[in-house]
Design a protein around this nucleic acid. Sequence first.
DNA 1: GATTGTTTAAACTTCT
DNA 2: AGAAGTTTAAACAATC
Length: 467
Amino acid sequence: MTLEVCNSMETIEHCDIQFNFQAMEPDQETEIAAENLQNINKELMYQTSTTDVDINMEYLPADIQSCVEIESSNVISISENQIVEIQFQNETGLINTEYIVNNNIIEADNIINLKDGVYEKIIPYDIYDSVKSSTESFEVIQQTEEPKLKSTEIITQSIINIPLLSPQSENDEQNETDLTSLTWLHNITNIMSVPNIPTPPVSPTPKPKRKHTGNQEDLTININYYKKNGDKKPPFSYATLICMAMGKNGNKMTLSAIYHWIRENFLYYRKAHPSWQNSIRHNLSLNKCFVKHPRSKDQPGKGGFWKLDLERLEESRRSKRRSSLTVRSPRNRHADQKTQKPLRKPKRYRSNQNTGERKHNILSNISICGDTDIDNFEDEKKKKENKPEKRLQKEVSLLPKLDEVEDESHKEDETNDFVPSSMPNQSVVTEPVNQMLAEDELTGLLLATNGWDDCQLELLDSLLDSL
DNA sequence: GATTGTTTAAACTTCT
DNA sequence: AGAAGTTTAAACAATC
C-alpha cells in the first residue's frame, strides 16, 4: 500500500494532519508506511521500502515539519490551507483517494481548488441543480472532463486548529482538555462529508485551548485506534456518536441501526456492557435535536426513525448564545427535585471504564473510520446468543464474549430498519440549503457554546444569516 | 418476551 | 462553588 502526499498549494500556517491507513497484512504495516511521499510542487519525493521507516527531513518539503510514528498510522505535519491528496493504493492499484483541507477530509468526488484563501469545492453534478436552485452562493466556474463535476461551492477560509490527542500519548491527561461536546462539531464536519453533500463553511478558528501543552503530534487522535481497540472508550459523547451515525446514514436511522453503526465503528461498544444502549436511547429521547418519526403503516418493524432536527439545532444554538451573553438562568435541578421526590436507591452498577475519562475533540476522519456496510445490517433482535440490553440489572450476566461478537455474522435485515447509505443524497437534494447546514448547525447545538468565543459565534451567525 | 421510548435522578465532568 | 452538560442507572409504558 502506498501513501502519496501531494502538496499542491502554497502554505500559510501550520497544522497537523494525520493519515491513517491499513496494511493489507498486519506484518506489512511498517513496510508500506511511507513508501512514497511526494510533493508535487517542489518535485520532491521521499521513498522508502524498509520496514523501519526513517524519514529524512531533507527530502520533505520545508513546510512539512515532522513525520513521525510511521507504523499503523502516519503523522505528518503539514501546512494549513494546503490541499493534500492522499491516494491509498495496494498492489492492485488505487483503492481510494481523499483530499484534506484544514483537517477536513473531503471525498474524492469533491475536487477542491484553493485560491487566495478561498476554498472552492466542486459539487458533484448530480446534486448541482438542486443546490443551485436554492442558493446564490454557488456558481459554475469550470467544466471538468468528469461530467459529474460541474459547480463550485465557495467556502470561506477558516482554519481549524484543534488540539488532538494521541491515544498512545503518554501525556493523555494533560492533553485531554475540553475536547468534549462543543468541539465535536468539527468531527461532524468530517463525518458528514459524505459524497454529494455540499460542505458548509467550516467553523471559525477556535482560540488555542487554555493550558494546552505538548506538541500537536501528541494530541492527534487516531480514530482507527478506537475502531480497532476496544480497551479504551472512544472520546465521543453519545450525542456525538448518534450524530456520527446519522451523518453517515442520511440523518435518519432506526435505533437498532444506530446501535449497529456504533458497534461496527467502535470496537469498545462491541465489548462493552450493553448499558450504553440505554444511554443512547436516553440521549435520543432527551435531546430535542433528535426527533422521532414514526414508521408509516407500510413499513413494518419496531420503533420509529430518528432524525436530526436541524431547525431545532439552530434555534437551540441561538438561544444558547443569547443566554450565554446575558445571565445564566438559575438552575438547581437536583436540589429542587430532591425536595419533591424521595431519593433513589444507590446505584447497583457503574462502569469504571469511563472514570476520569474526558471527551476529546479529534481530527476526526470518519471516512477512514469506515463506512459500515449497513446493507448487511442484522437487526439486534436476531442475535439471540448476543443478548442486547434488556433490563440493566439483568445485563451483567448477559455480556457477550468478545469472540462471539466478532464472529457475529450479519444477515440481511428483514425489517428494513436500516436506512441505506443512499439516503443522504436524497434528503440533501430535496431539502433547502438551510437544511443542509448540518455540520455547523450541529455544532452550536448539541454542544455547549462555551467553547466558542465571540468571534466564532459572530462568524457563525453571519454565515447563518447569509443563507 | 423483547425492544423501543420516556422519564427521573444521581454521579460525574467541565467551565466560569 | 455553582452552573451546566454528560453519563449511568433505573422504572415503566407502549409496541411488535
